[in-house]
Design a protein around this nucleic acid. Structure first.
Lengths: 224, 224
DNA sequence: CGTGTTATTGACTTCATTCAAATTAGGTGG
DNA sequence: CCACCTAATTTGAATGAAGTCAATAACACG
């Protein structure tokens, strides 16, 4: 298994970039690794945003709740993804481990400081924010304008693309998680998947946590 | 499909940003002001992202389309808002003037360059991206989990908050725009507004483009 | 005033939800 | 390994919220 710093070679970027060959020995803001068990809470909506995070392994969900318990999962974060950045002092989401997950926690600092710092991580973080924004914008189109089947097809293809697999997706999240991500109910998620299976577009092996995409072309047609 | 470059803004060449000899690096993109008539296109989805924009006056909508014409308006941009930032070379949205609008166009540069430039605009832009992200995240909760009436109530309160008015909102956009922003149909938008009026929560003056919020407390209760 | 556009209202339909029940998966301890 | 238990998922039937289709009504402006 690879470590999160695979593509973050030497410095963390919180100070002006100096000398790549020399690793700062004290490293005050270098992130610390933390592990979370399946279902465990990483931070909570409204809590103080002392850190932001980068996924090393496993899957993390970030979500918002309405007062009556309705939930919207804005994103699933996979290895390499950065989540939990805030412009204010508070987290505007909750984050939980979907399966056993390992993350690196970085001490949060203001956007101002970050942009000024001009380091590797600074650029990574700005780029991560932009990626989050792009995903969010695509997801708004999905949530606002796609049918249940289109949502499921989009989700499967998108997830497959992110995992860069060969059509064999391991889905660590429950139907409830998928439903709360796509703005559906678990029953509708289940029915849509069953229907895709009957049509031979996907395969649902015995243990329901993995899915094989048999016919991506048809899925692509269903996506819109 | 549409050809991307048909209506790109009119000034000359599109080469990637290279420092013109005379322009100091601190102010790489002092923008040029442009006016757009109601309904006019500012840029188009898939078009080359040569500029990003800041609203001076009026209202701009940014939207994405599905192949069959379904549309999602991700945001309305008011005076002071920045829109049209992209991490890639292409616009992933269309932008049009909702009413007569004046914007400043800034020559686009890469996020890398921007962060490195460490200027006032850089910080403004990063902050604007973060604001867009936060709005998008709230909007996902609305689109995925709120009822029609809750969507309308949220929209009215949010818009009122952004305009910082005293409950007298001027809505420059059509019912179609509102519907495409909230993931509804024009009929449902109309019915919801009528119902709120019957309940005495809002007032719809004769010319349907302004709304008076009579009872924000009740609206707040309807919001979730 | 007409005329085209936008908004409202009504009747009906539909897709997704809700409620309910059956089935399956996964863990625990014998 | 198996029996048992609980939680997750699937399936079925009925309902409902929002959509569609269609017909006014109200503006906007030459």
């Amino acid at each position: 298994m690879q470590t999160a710093l695979t593509n973050t070679p030497t410095t963390n970027g919180f100070r002006p970039y100096t000398e790549p060959a020399r690793r700062p020995p004290e490293a005050p803001a270098l992130g610390s690794t933390r592990s979370f068990a399946k279902g465990e809470e990483i931070f909570i909506e409204g809590g103080r945003a002392a850190y932001f995070f980068k996924v090393v392994s496993g899957t993390v969900r970030t979500s918002k709740l309405l007062s009556d318990g309705r939930r919207q999962i804005d994103a699933f974060h996979l290895a390499g993804d950065i989540f939990g950045m805030e412009s204010g002092e508070e987290h505007r989401f909750s984050a939980e481990a979907v399966d056993d997950a390992v993350v690196i926690a970085f001490r949060r600092c203001s956007l101002e400081t970050l942009v000024a710092s001009d380091g590797v991580l600074a650029r990574q973080v700005v780029s991560a924010i932009m990626t989050s924004l792009e995903r969010a914008q695509n997801h708004m189109l999905l949530l606002g304008r796609k049918s249940a089947m289109e949502k499921i097809a989009s989700f499967l293809l998108d997830y497959s693309r992110r995992l860069d697999d060969e059509g064999e997706i391991d889905l660590p999240m429950s139907r409830m998680d998928i439903a709360d991500h796509l703005g559906l109910t678990i029953e509708t998620v289940s029915r849509s998947l069953t229907q895709l299976e009957r049509q031979g577009v996907i395969e649902l092996p015995a243990h329901r946590r993995s899915i094989t995409l048999r016919d991506k072309a048809t899925l692509g047609r269903l996506e819109t």
